[in-house]
Write a protein that binds this DNA or RNA. Structure first.
Length: 316
DNA sequence: AACTTTGGCAACCGCCCGACG
DNA sequence: CCGTCGGGCGGTTGCCAAAGT
């Protein structure tokens, strides 16, 4: 037996809110507040709505200082940084963006940002890009040669024809804080976000993939089978109470950061788990680090991480 | 012009968690 | 300690408009 529903579904109105309903709810809350009880509120003001529905309507639309649409690149960057770090915890992400609601950010991520970052473009975007490409080619005498050199579906590169526009559009910059072979990437990430992520127990953005110094006995003789370790850089997080760095075997990270039930479905391609396009690190690295810091060492990464396998950095 | 497909977004659903008796 | 309740949250659905054929 499930729980009793919060309201009588039969006598409650569903669907879009009318201007009259909005006005009733807004004026009541502005004058009296919510009274700490959303369930009782609709009865008080004579609305045939579920209390939860009222709450949602107020928080997402009627509340003052709500912003809709028009996400800036800075907001894109913050959303992506936090999504990579803490996953789809939209309320926490929304808390970092004044005027934005979790629902808005969730919708924006699902319908636009994800596609923007991972290449599935809207028709409008596709057309814009085609126009830009046309203009570029028109102004470049050897445009065709250049295009051929980059490789295409049937080109000589042998790579899958996946068009990603992350690095082309430079929307969000590198994954912040990631360290590759001693180079810290994306130091420009906001300190406040770093601290927030750390407070939440997130480790991935500060992770260093590296081969452990000592080969454990079980991997002696076949060190290539050993999982990558992960060093959590805590030097920039003085308030965290930890100094220096701690090194944990990657397989233990899930326990160490057990909260981090991050579902990176849309980032699967980073880990060679793409649904229809399996990608190798050498293909993905320019996307992770558009300035090619990583690309130059992609061979090394491939060795370190067994990138044909999912790389587990405390995320799921 | 008509029909189909896709995208965007508001709203709902149901689960989880903390407060409280 | 346990059950109940309300708030909060993330996932999903459904509708409508725009774009494509």
């Amino acid at each position: 037996m499930g729980r009793a529903p919060c309201c009588d579904k039969a006598s409650v109105k569903k669907g879009p809110w009318s201007p009259e309903e909005d006005a009733k709810l807004k004026s009541y809350i502005e004058q009296n507040g919510t009274g700490g009880n959303w369930i009782a509120l609709p009865q008080k003001i004579g609305l045939k709505r579920c209390g939860k529905s009222c709450r949602l309507r107020w928080l997402n639309y009627l509340r003052p200082n709500i912003k809709h649409g028009g996400f800036s690149e800075e907001e894109d960057r913050i959303i992506l940084s936090l999504y990579i770090s803490i996953g789809s915890r939209w309320s926490i992400i929304a808390a970092q963006l004044p005027g934005r609601t979790d629902n808005d950010i969730k919708n924006y991520w699902n319908t636009r940002l994800k596609k923007k970052l991972f290449g599935k473009q809207s028709r409008k975007d596709q057309r814009q890009q085609q126009q830009q490409q046309f203009l570029r080619q028109a102004t470049t005498s050897d445009g065709m040669k250049q295009e051929a050199a980059t490789g295409d579906v049937n080109g000589s590169s042998g790579l899958p024809a996946v068009t990603y526009n992350w690095h082309q559009q430079a929307i969000v910059g590198p994954v912040p804080g990631m360290m590759m072979e001693g180079h810290r990437i994306g130091d420009e990430v906001d300190e406040s976000i770093r601290k927030l992520i750390y407070k939440l127990g997130g480790a991935s953005p500060f992770a260093t993939l590296q081969v452990p110094q000592r080969v454990p006995p079980m991997y002696e003789g076949s060190p290539s089978l050993m999982p990558p370790s992960c060093t959590v850089d805590t030097t920039s997080l003085n308030e965290g109470g930890m100094q220096g760095s701690i090194t944990l075997p990657a397989l233990e990270l899930d326990q160490s950061f057990h909260f981090n039930q991050v579902k990176l479905d849309s980032l699967d391609c980073f880990f060679g788990m793409g649904t229809d396009q399996s990608m190798r690190w050498s293909e993905v690295s320019p996307l992770v680090c558009p300035n090619n810091t990583v690309a130059s060492s992609s061979q090394g990464m491939q060795q370190y991480c067994h990138v044909d396998e999912p790389v587990n950095l405390g995320m799921k």
